[in-house]
């Protein structure tokens, strides 16, 4: 048998590890470094935690965090709607493949296109309100994107509409891979539709649900910029200001990449803080399953 030195495997891994370190590690280290400098152009003087101090006393940043937190309310909605629609499709109602395509379609439409279309539809005199007025529901015709009370909810609804298709396809794929005998057995035992859904189907979707929830949390924290930018620019006032837009404004408009980096670090840490317990829960569940 050929004997190798203990460090030989590491040698084989070294090129890829170095590449990974460069691709992922360097930008991360650079952002941490930038966050403690007053960057003008490509670099700037070290100013310690001054950028962080500026951020935390800025009420626009506080509003941005609050709005991102509010958008997290969409996560359970996305999971719930995704599961329900996937289960309905799984029942193989007539034309279910067409419905699946229709439900998935929003997910593949470019976000700027969605933004422009919905901006027009949801303006005070847009198609949605015109329709409401035409059917005698004029009292429901609100300034969906122009009112501070409604704007963030409207943006959230559009994000849900866009992201929902991904969840449906994900859950449906998992359902189609399940052993149908379990469903059949439950049916023979007299379990109704709701009972089968609650006690048989949903427990088997646990892994996918966790994955989708994690992806949705990341979406709501760090992937809503194009929606907000195209539809409201963070307005009216700061009613739809979110952390990504705050980063964009500081990095590309206010010419203060140092502050933008500090917010990026905070966003990274918040996301990490939310992800770690989720992965720990999953690891514990897997261990329990093994035992």
């Amino acid at each position: 048998m050929l004997r190798t030195k203990p460090w030989t495997p590491y040698l084989y891994l070294a090129p890829v590890s170095l590449l990974m370190l460069f691709v992922f590690g360097y930008p991360l280290a650079a952002i941490f470094d930038f966050s403690m400098r007053r960057i003008r152009g490509a670099s700037g003087p070290f100013i310690g935690l001054e950028n962080y101090r500026q951020i935390f006393k800025d009420d626009v940043f506080q509003q941005a965090i609050l709005h991102n937190a509010q958008l997290l309310l969409a996560v359970p909605i996305l999971v719930l709607v995704g599961i329900v629609l996937a289960v309905l499709l799984y029942e193989r109602v007539a034309g279910w493949r067409v419905y699946r395509t229709i439900l998935f379609a929003p997910f593949i439409i470019a976000i700027p296109v969605i933004g422009v279309v919905f901006s027009n539809m949801l303006s005070l005199n847009g198609a949605v309100n015109e329709l409401l007025r035409a059917i005698g529901l004029g009292f429901l015709a609100l300034d969906w994107l122009g009112s501070a009370q409604m704007a963030l909810w409207s943006v959230m609804a559009i994000i849900i509409w866009h992201e929902m298709g991904f969840g449906v396809v994900l859950f449906l794929a998992r359902l189609l891979s399940l052993n149908e005998e379990i469903q059949e057995a439950a049916r023979i035992d007299g379990a109704g539709w709701w009972q089968r859904l609650w006690y048989v189907t949903i427990p088997q979707l646990k892994d996918v649900t966790e994955f989708y929830a994690v992806v949705s949390v990341i979406t709501m924290l760090a992937w809503v910029f194009p929606f907000v930018y195209v539809m409201t620019r963070g307005g009216p006032g700061n009613a739809t200001q979110v952390m990504e837009l705050y980063i964009f404004n500081f990095a590309f408009r206010n010419s203060l990449p140092g502050i933008a980096s500090a917010v990026a670090v905070i966003l990274f840490l918040i996301t990490l803080a939310l992800m770690i317990p989720l992965f720990q829960l999953r690891a514990r569940a897997e261990m329990e399953g093994i035992e």
Partner: peptide, 8 residues
Amino acid sequence: NEDMNSID
């Protein structure tokens, strides 16, 4: 115009 805040 009343829709000032909702149009570009």
